[in-house]
């Protein structure tokens, strides 16, 4: 039993991070505002979770200007996609038990 739990990625322990990864799995790239609205979280809360995922190099951050407004969008890195798939598999295995 302990072995299976070991496959769960600590980086995805929070609800917000699971939400971010889920959105990025099915979209090429998503901007900050869209993530915020979909997950219904505060700016600061979301920013800190995004920073944590960026630090683990699971997500790629792209900053650009649309007109005069700064726009930050996020996409999944190869490692991030792999890690999240593993995490999902681990969750499914746990339920299958």
């Amino acid at each position: 039993m302990k072995n299976i739990i070991a496959h769960l990625d600590k980086a995805f322990e929070s609800r917000v991070r699971l939400g971010i990864m889920s959105m990025l799995m099915v979209n090429d790239s998503v901007d900050f505002k869209t993530i915020k609205e979909t997950l219904d979280v505060s700016d600061g809360n979301l920013a800190s979770h995004l920073a944590a995922l960026e630090k683990k190099e699971y997500i790629i951050v792209t900053k650009q200007f649309i007109g005069k407004k700064p726009n930050t969008s996020y996409s999944l890195s190869k490692e991030g996609r792999l890690a999240f798939k593993k995490h999902l598999q681990a969750l499914e295995d746990l339920i299958g038990k």
């Binding site: 699971l18 889920s22 799995m25 099915v26 979909t38 999902l88 969750l91 746990l94 339920i95």
Partner: peptide
Amino acid sequence: EKDTQHLEQLAEIRDIMNKSTR
């Protein structure tokens, strides 16, 4: 209790994936 928690997580992931594409 852990089981239902994981199940809920998976359901939520599916829901978010749906919501963010459709």
